[in-house]
Design a protein around this nucleic acid. Structure first.
Lengths: 233, 233
DNA sequence: CGCCAGTTTGACCAAGATCAACGCAAGTGG
DNA sequence: CCACTTGCGTTGATCTTGGTCAAACTGGCG
């Protein structure tokens, strides 16, 4: 889910609708990943390093090989908002505007593949299936953004934190033991809360027996039901 | 801005990168709008009518000929959130998931063009420029959603209302006299506030001389500077 | 050991929600 | 034409959630 850009995606376009495109698509499907890899370069970033800044050019986009990335924005008075976290296997930074509206930072150490946008666009014109994959990526991000608007606009603090834990669980494909790569501050800025509120809510979940917190970056879900009940009561 | 799908968009793809695609694209560009219109049908909805419901199939998408549409979701306890308003000239409902995650409703009387998704996908495979237009549409919506997450997560009530007025102004291409098609309740559910707070903030803006409110669906911006100062102080 | 960054907890406060009443204009039916 | 209703919108009084401020705790590390 979410900006996943798996091998399978590239090859499952609709049947092409005429001979010429069919020929291109057939060859293209085989070459799509190869072509994408040929225009990509490997990059490495360390904890809290900036991958790109607000205002930078959008000449490239990224896929995460390993690590976690935060997409964020700072208001002039210091308030910060995290628009999204991206995890291993997901892509980010495929933006439309000429300039970055948000910055991207490494939460911990991160390894990325970096792809030039212009070359990707050209590939898209040859490979409808690649074009579709990129569009689907954008649409998944959009759906995710819309759910989070609901969370930010209409949910209470406990509901937000419960949603966050369950989302993390789903996206990291974890079952009960979650590793939480980001700080409490990151979580707060992601959920539109303060760090104190995040701590208090987590503590209250712990007291209620819904979770266990062996250490700050490790949370175990003891009662998924209790958390789910909070999310759309 | 925002899911605009103007004539120009369809024809401004990158130069195709080989002869075969070039030939297709050239013919396609001429036919793109025609083809899209051929698969579209005109629909009409009256005030507060549901265009599609949460859970419905996503077999089609829409472009607004005239009127305003709200994309929204109801929580089980009655809390409502409006993910987006769409105005004349904009498109909506091009979703990825098999089922609608949000519903769409007519704010006032609305005239739409309705396009089947499957046929559109096929057109996309033939016309890279159309594929790109649709992707750009999704990316614009995503950028818009991300700004609004910032608003919902980190802005005060006066900042939200000021942002809303300025956004409305920009998207409706108005200068000073705004017509506000939606109710105060809609605005509240869009901004993550209550109707009372929206009213109070508007009244305070009026007292401060920043706006005038000849009637509830008509707002005049008297001091755009005052409003802009609020948005990123 | 002391320091530092991040986390947790407590006491208090304020922005905005809730509850309640009132205003006002557009129907509607007698 | 005028009571009456209905659906919004506006305003005021009070309450609650979550923010703010402050202090203590924890684990890692020089």
């Amino acid at each position: 889910m979410y900006t996943q850009f798996a091998t399978g995606d590239v090859t499952n376009g609709l049947a092409p609708s005429n001979d010429a495109t069919a020929a291109i698509a057939r060859s293209g499907r085989l070459d799509a990943l190869v072509a994408l890899e040929r225009i990509g370069t490997r990059r490495q970033f360390s904890r809290n390093e900036e991958i790109y800044a607000e205002g930078h050019s959008t000449e490239c986009w990224f896929r995460i090989v390993s690590g976690t990335v935060r997409i964020c924005k700072l208001l002039t008075d210091g308030r910060r908002h995290i628009a999204e976290f991206h995890y291993a296997g997901e892509s980010f930074g495929f933006d439309n505007a000429p300039e970055r509206l948000f910055s991207a930072e490494a939460v911990g150490d991160v390894i990325l593949m970096r792809y030039p946008r212009r070359a990707t666009e050209q590939l898209c014109d040859e490979l409808p299936s690649l074009a579709r994959s990129l569009r689907d990526m954008a649409l998944r991000d959009l759906a995710s953004a819309q759910s989070r608007m609901l969370l930010l606009g209409r949910m209470t603090a406990p509901e937000r934190v419960a949603s966050f834990l369950l989302e993390l669980c789903e996206r990291r494909e974890a079952t009960r033991a979650l590793d939480v790569p980001m700080s409490r501050n990151d979580i707060a800025d992601y959920l539109g809360l303060t760090i104190e509120t995040v701590c208090r809510v987590l503590s209250s979940f712990k007291r209620a027996g819904a979770i266990a917190i062996p250490n700050p970056h490790r949370i175990e879900l003891r009662s998924r039901d209790a958390l789910e009940a909070l999310c759309d009561a």
